[in-house]
Design a protein around this nucleic acid. Structure first.
Lengths: 204, 204
DNA sequence: CACCTTAACGGACTTTCCCCCGTTTAGTAT
DNA sequence: ATACTAAACGGGGGAAAGTCCGTTAAGGTG
């Protein structure tokens, strides 16, 4: 009858073995990624075999190859969001919105650079089904900070989308992987550009 | 000896039959896209068969599946750039840089919306090799317009990248294909947001 | 504790991308 | 005109993504 006191909104919680297998697959994927570096040496068949599971299971859990990388990214992003939601002030709550926005950009740049391999692999021509959560945390956070500022006559939702794109785009789409790590000051330059951009947008 | 009076910089011009085949393949691809609408019903094998050419030829010309869509896009973009480089003033030369920047955004939004299917298909997990010219025209044009303004102490190259991302990103990554055409005023809203953004960035 | 429903599992099968390399042909110099 | 060279063509084949459906077992019910 009352299927549990704890919430679980729509259908039912994930079954226990499913959770176990998801964890196991994620861990195995990390192992494989760590050993033979190289984004695309991770194949679905290889992962299934190494994890001692059927291929069907892998696809059931992640839907698509990109889904694995998205899951991996989401997983790491939890720790990152922790810092943002409840960390020390420049990044966490307690500073002025503009300060936080700048700090957030800086932090996200660092995060994406250190995960560029995975992040790129998570982009692929057909997500939708089960996994993909198109950077909604980043956008939502930026949206919130914008809401705390006095920006008259602006479409804040749209502005948040634009800023998210301006932040992620240079890293994911417009710079090749080589450019990211090679010029030693690249991240600093991107961070400075981000600060400059948001200061201009939000009125110095 | 002198291999031609006409330039052809580095290695040698494309051979005549190669050009013919490229054109033919592009045309055939457009036919197939027009008939059975649907981005991914276009397969390399199908294209080769319909064009009465070998599969190897198709891959030689375009390198990868995404390469076809990039080529298609580049092709259409020529006409678009025509308008930008030598068209009537708000978009073409003759207006103030800020005006042109706003007009450019508006035009590019319209262009991308009308090509969203192809544009999305042109994004894929491994370009680089032969075809991909990652939106360099857009970035270069924005960069040029920024150079004509008085923006003190800004990293103009980086700013151009950011604005390009802010322009393309919302359309390619952050809005699903359904959202693009469904709310009737979506393009107008994006255009207004673009205008607002560049006015803020460039000092109202 | 036995039963029943519903979801997860497994792995064979299909489709499609892309590489490879022998063959053919365009373009050029003699 | 002929010979030569470098590039384009062709299509067979391997590898990996994604699908399908019969089988198994988890978690709840009487």
């Amino acid at each position: 009858m009352e299927r549990s006191v704890l919430s679980l909104g729509a259908p039912r919680a994930e079954r226990a073995d499913a959770v176990r297998n998801r964890q196991h697959l994620l861990a195995t994927a990390r192992e494989m990624l760590a050993e033979q570096c190289g984004a695309d040496s991770l194949t679905m068949d290889g992962l299934a075999e190494r994890a001692k599971l059927g291929k069907g299971t892998v696809f059931r859990r992640f839907g698509t190859r990109a889904g694995i990388f998205q899951a991996l990214l989401d997983d790491d992003e939890v720790a990152f969001q922790e810092q943002v939601m409840a960390g020390p002030p420049p990044l966490g709550p307690g500073a002025a919105p503009l300060e936080r926005l700048i700090a957030y950009g800086r932090a996200r740049i660092a995060f994406l650079i250190s995960h560029s391999e995975i992040a790129r692999a998570a982009l692929d021509g057909n997500q939708s089904v089960p996994a993909g959560t198109e950077t909604p945390l980043s956008r939502a956070h930026i949206r919130m900070l914008l809401g705390q500022m006095r920006l008259e006559g602006a479409d804040l939702d749209m502005l948040a989308v634009q800023l998210t794109a301006a932040l992620d785009g240079p890293l994911l789409l417009f710079l090749s992987a080589a450019d990211l790590t090679e010029p030693p000051g690249a991240d600093a330059r991107i961070a400075r550009a981000w600060q400059d951009l948001v200061q201009r947008v939000c009125g110095s």
